[in-house]
């Protein structure tokens, strides 16, 4: 072993010696949980007292206001957009993943092409889509027809699906790729055609990946802020836009907090239902 230690080597060596035997896995978990608790759970819990006016005779005034049909509509729209985006994304992701898993040998390149967009800031990607979809943009030139879908529901869903696609492709590809090729051959030899094999063997075996992908996309999409802000009009506002507006434009912290609390509780409720239908622990074990 070299006895010559310089600079950073000496420091890490000294630190390592000091920590040796004093730090356990429990400490390391503690650091992680502490960080999440202090910077994630506490701030969110803090929204609860912020949403209540303790000095008033009507402390839940903000919650009453949030039940106004105007805001309820936005809330419902957020979940509907979340579901629509999930459906569109899963459909595209399944086709891409199927191709990656069974029809190409250039998996590395293809996966890279799918992941690279994640390196680019969301705002830039949405902006790109905005210019692409605009009436004078390349989409109309390419298709040769005038489709004006900008600032409408299809534009927002298209944008969201586009941006969240990589999050769906990876888990689905993983679960498809884990299927032994002989399993599919066996199905064919047993008398099942391509479609029957897809329906009875490939699809059920890829379900864990599909469920995981759906969950990730749904959570991300429902809470979208930039997508509807850039690609939608006033009628495409989602809950995140509403919260931001209440907080940043109207400086109504109490109302913004109330909306955030409602949204978070609804989302958690949704996840609980989801968990009852699909055993999420099993799903995440399988991917």
């Amino acid at each position: 072993m070299s006895t010559k230690q310089t600079g950073i080597d000496r420091i890490t060596h000294t630190v390592g010696e000091r920590l040796e035997g004093r730090i356990s896995n429990r400490h390391l978990v503690g650091i992680g949980l502490g960080f999440v608790g202090f910077f994630f759970i506490l701030p969110i819990l803090y929204l609860i007292p912020e949403s209540i006016n303790f000095n008033s005779s009507t402390p839940f005034e903000s919650y009453r206001r949030a039940t106004n049909s105007l805001y309820v509509e936005v809330l419902i729209r957020s979940f509907i957009y979340g579901i629509l985006t999930t459906i569109v994304t899963l459909l595209m992701a399944y086709i891409i993943s199927y191709f990656l898993a069974f029809s190409t040998k250039r998996v590395q390149i293809a996966i890279t092409l799918i992941i690279v967009p994640l390196w680019i800031a969301y705002i830039i990607r949405y902006f790109g889509i905005l210019l692409f979809l605009s009436p004078t943009g390349p989409m109309n030139t390419i298709l040769g027809v005038d489709i004006d879908i900008l600032f409408s529901t299809p534009a927002v869903i298209l944008g969201l699906a586009n941006v969240y696609l990589p999050f769906a492709v990876l888990p689905i590809y993983n679960s498809l790729n884990a299927i032994h090729p002989e399993t599919l051959s066996a199905s064919r030899v047993l008398g099942a055609g391509k479609w029957n094999t897809l329906r009875n063997v490939t699809f059920p075996l890829s379900l864990p990946g599909l469920v995981a992908a759906g969950l990730i996309v749904f959570i991300l999409a429902t809470g979208s802020f930039l997508g509807p802000a850039v690609l939608g009009g006033p009628n495409q506002s989602m809950i995140a836009n509403l919260i931001a507006q209440a907080f940043l434009e109207n400086f109504n912290i109490q109302f913004a907090s109330a909306l955030a609390v409602i949204y978070t509780i609804l989302l958690l409720g949704f996840l609980l239902i989801f968990n009852a239908v699909f055993d999420l622990q099993e799903v995440f074990e399988n991917i």
């Binding site: 002989e182 066996a186 030899v189």
Partner: peptide, 30 residues
């Protein structure tokens, strides 16, 4: 002919049993 039209029985090295089906369902599939 494609495999499904040949009426062939095949046992694979990896067994290739369908992991999401019971033994009974595996046999019933064919």
């Amino acid at each position: 002919l494609p495999p499904e039209k040949r009426n062939i029985g095949m046992a694979f090295q990896s067994t290739a049993l369908f992991p999401h089906m019971s033994v009974r369902e595996n046999i019933a599939y064919g």
